[in-house]
Write a protein that binds this DNA or RNA. Structure first.
Lengths: 153, 153
DNA sequence: CTAAGACCTGTAGTGACTACAGGTACAAGG
DNA sequence: CCTTGTACCTGTAGTCACTACAGGTCTTAG
């Protein structure tokens, strides 16, 4: 192994190092590769993944976007735009605002929920009797005009 | 099939009827039975499930609790209390308030998220140039003190 | 008698991971 | 030289709360 090869390896990262730097689980990194949001990196002779700074940047992007509540599919779409280089600031802002709207409606759902829970527990005498208005309420079909189901982050 | 048998069947429901009354999917009802939150109902000669009004009540309870953001495991625990009949109003209220706290912290997470998204899109000129501060921000590791991951409803 | 519809079981897919089991590679210490 | 420890590898299965088939049986109306 010649010196110049060592120099080339200087800026590379093993998966464990990448994991620590990004605080993304090793298994998650491999998962991202499997589903194609991270590219397959080159391998060492022993088959170990060798990451370059570009991978670090990309994984940071993915992690940050996940933290902001984007789904992996949304991130995939964002990355395609970015990879293609044919995006405009307008497009990205539109996607961000759309996402913000989703978050806002999720907040509203949860606030309605919280209100209902408050009302229910306020009705409750909170004594040691086996009779509870909360339980009664749960047995009663409500309006059902809202559903918080399938509104995961 | 004698008359008295028909009378006994009067108040029973087929799975499709139960599904329509509760607005819970047929497949979901069977799923609830499989995981044990709904009891296995008696069957007709042909093997069809025959539900009684108690099943309707129980499924309503489950649906309503799900709408209020309780997980099936939490519902299982609630149902055990109710089934045992040894619950007090206090216990139920405590569970409800605990759940409310979870919802509140989820709301806070989402509000922080929303704020960040607002700040990011405000920075954006929104023009047709392929250069976007949002993208730049996504490539940048932030504090990371909060994570919205694994905070599904 | 036939066709539509409701029901049955069992399995696989979703999203975004996480957790193994069982194996290989490689460096440092005895 | 051997052992020990660590980091890596693949592949599969589990999580949650469903949903969606495939491929069958049963019931009911015309």
């Amino acid at each position: 192994m010649a010196l110049h090869e060592k120099i080339n390896l200087k800026a590379t990262l093993a998966i464990g190092v990448l994991s620590k730097k990004t605080k993304v689980n090793i298994e998650t990194i491999r998962y991202y590769e499997r589903i194609g949001v991270m590219p397959s990196p080159p391998r060492s002779a022993a088959g170990h993944r060798i990451y370059a700074p570009t991978h670090l940047r990309r994984l940071t992007f993915i992690k940050r976007s996940r933290e902001l509540g984007f789904s992996l599919n949304e991130i995939r779409a964002l990355l395609e735009l970015v990879d293609g280089g044919d995006y405009t600031c307008d497009e990205i802002r539109a996607a961000t605002l759309l996402h913000k709207e989703k978050i806002l409606s999720r907040i509203k759902d949860l606030q309605r929920l919280e209100k209902t829970l408050t009302i229910m527990s306020d009705k409750c005498a909170g004594d040691t009797l086996p009779d509870c208005p909360i339980i009664d309420a749960l047995y009663t079909e409500e309006d059902g005009s809202y559903s918080i189901l399938d509104t995961a982050v």
